[in-house]
């Protein structure tokens, strides 16, 4: 399986993502934002970080970079496109995903473990996944998902919510919502479910000496589904 990780100026989880992808069997290539061609890929990842310093709006300037046209083309033709954290923000700025990620409710950067519950597993990302509730890590200042009522209706009609923030036992309640996101949304699909944007970082949870190991479950399952 081939994967590509796009590096924007200011990306800082690009290496972590590449390490994780390689660990679970992907042949990964790093792609510079100023390139125009994507290498042949089964999965393209927009990594976390602070592309363009998060200036203006998070992800806004990355969504105008040269490589993005190829990324959009790739996704529109059904290719798997995963955006983590800043990558999720870029996906909303390119309008490949609906909504926007606002400043966290308490106006603070938050770095900690959270639990998320998978809402829709009829897709390449979560099909056959062995756990329904994953402990993942978040590290962001703008993860407060927001959208219009019309967009929300569409999201619901198409079952686009990927993961919700929840308790250890899977209760989706306000007190387990770290950033104020509508409906505890932590991750979102496009209508076709080939594009996934997620605030939590599975790549930071890939061995038990780090914050935990549920990221391994995510990546292992993903590559199994692609084989």
């Amino acid at each position: 399986m081939n994967s590509s990780v796009i590096i924007f100026p200011g990306s800082n989880c690009d290496r972590d993502m590449a390490v994780a992808l390689k660990k679970f069997g992907f042949k990964n290539k790093m792609v510079w934002h100023n390139d125009t061609e994507l290498p042949k890929s089964d999965l393209v990842v927009l990594p976390g970080g602070f592309s363009y310093g998060d200036y203006l709006r998070c992800g806004s300037m990355a969504s105008k970079s040269k490589i993005i046209d190829s990324v959009i083309k790739f996704a529109k033709s059904g290719g798997l496109l995963l955006g983590i954290c800043n990558g999720f923000q870029i996906l909303t700025e390119t309008e490949l995903l609906p909504g926007v990620l606002l400043k966290n409710k308490y106006s603070k950067f938050i770095c900690k473990n959270v639990f998320v519950k998978i809402n829709n597993s009829e897709n390449k990302y979560f099909k056959n996944i062995k756990k329904n509730i994953l402990e993942l890590h978040i590290a962001h200042n703008e993860g407060n998902f927001f959208c219009s009522n019309d967009q929300m209706k569409e999201i619901n009609d198409n079952n686009q919510i990927a993961v919700h923030y929840c308790s250890q036992n899977g209760e989706i309640e306000d007190s387990f919502n770290p950033n104020g996101a509508i409906k505890n949304i932590a991750g979102l699909f496009n209508k076709e479910k080939n594009i996934l944007g997620m605030m939590p970082h599975p790549e930071r949870m890939i061995d038990n000496y780090l914050s935990g190991e549920d990221g391994s479950i995510f990546f292992q399952n993903l590559i199994n589904n692609l084989k």
């Binding site: 310093g53 200036y55 203006l56 105008k64």
Partner: peptide
């Protein structure tokens, strides 16, 4: 103004 500077560069790139 770091933000202004980077926005200007991005506009140039566009």
């Amino acid at each position: 103004d770091p933000q202004g500077k980077v926005v200007q560069q991005a506009l140039k790139g566009m």
